[in-house]
Amino acid sequence: MKMSDNKHLKSVIYHICILTLGLMMFYPVLWMIASSFKGHANALSPSLIPDQFLIQNYFQGWQGFGDLTFATFFKNSFIIATTATIGQVILSAMTAYGFGRIQFKGRNFWFSVMIITLLFPQQVVMIPQYLMFNQLGWIDTFKPLILPKFTPLPFFVFLMVQFVRGLPRELDEAARIDGCGVYMIFFKIILPNIKPALITAAIFSFYWTWQDFFTPLLYIQSTELYPVSLALSLFADPQAVTNWGAMFAMATLSLLPIFLIFIFFQRYLVEGIATSGLKG
Rank of each mutant, 00 (worst) to 15 (best):
F214C: 03
F214P: 00
F214L: 14
F214E: 12
T215I: 08
T215K: 08
P216D: 07
P216S: 09
P216I: 02
L217G: 11
L218G: 06
L218K: 11
Y219D: 02
Y219Q: 05
I220P: 14
I220M: 11
Q221I: 06
Q221V: 12
S222G: 07
S222V: 03
S222W: 06
T223P: 02
T223D: 14
E224C: 03
L225N: 10
L225R: 10
L225E: 01
Y226T: 04
Y226W: 07
P227Q: 02
S229Y: 04
S229N: 07
S229M: 03
L230Y: 11
A231T: 01
L232V: 03
L232Y: 02
S233H: 10
S233Y: 09
S233D: 13
L234P: 06
L234D: 12
L234S: 15
F235D: 04
F235I: 03
F235N: 04
A236H: 10
D237S: 13
D237E: 06
D237C: 08
P238V: 02
P238A: 02
Q239H: 12
Q239G: 12
Q239Y: 14
Q239N: 14
A240E: 13
A240L: 09
A240R: 15
V241D: 13
V241Q: 14
V241A: 10
V241G: 05
V241E: 15
T242G: 08
T242Q: 09
N243P: 00
W244Q: 01
W244V: 01
G245M: 01
G245S: 02
A246L: 11
A246K: 09
M247V: 04
M247E: 10
F248D: 10
F248K: 08
F248P: 06
F248C: 06
F248E: 10
A249E: 04
A249S: 14
A249C: 09
A249I: 06
M250W: 10
M250Q: 11
M250V: 01
M250S: 05
M250F: 05
A251Q: 10
A251S: 14
A251G: 15
T252M: 02
T252A: 03
T252F: 05
L253N: 08
L253Q: 07
L253A: 04
L253K: 08
S254C: 05
L255D: 02
L255I: 09
L255Q: 11
L256F: 12
P257S: 11
P257M: 06
P257Q: 12
P257I: 06
I258Q: 12
I258E: 08
I258H: 01
I258A: 13
F259D: 03
F259G: 09
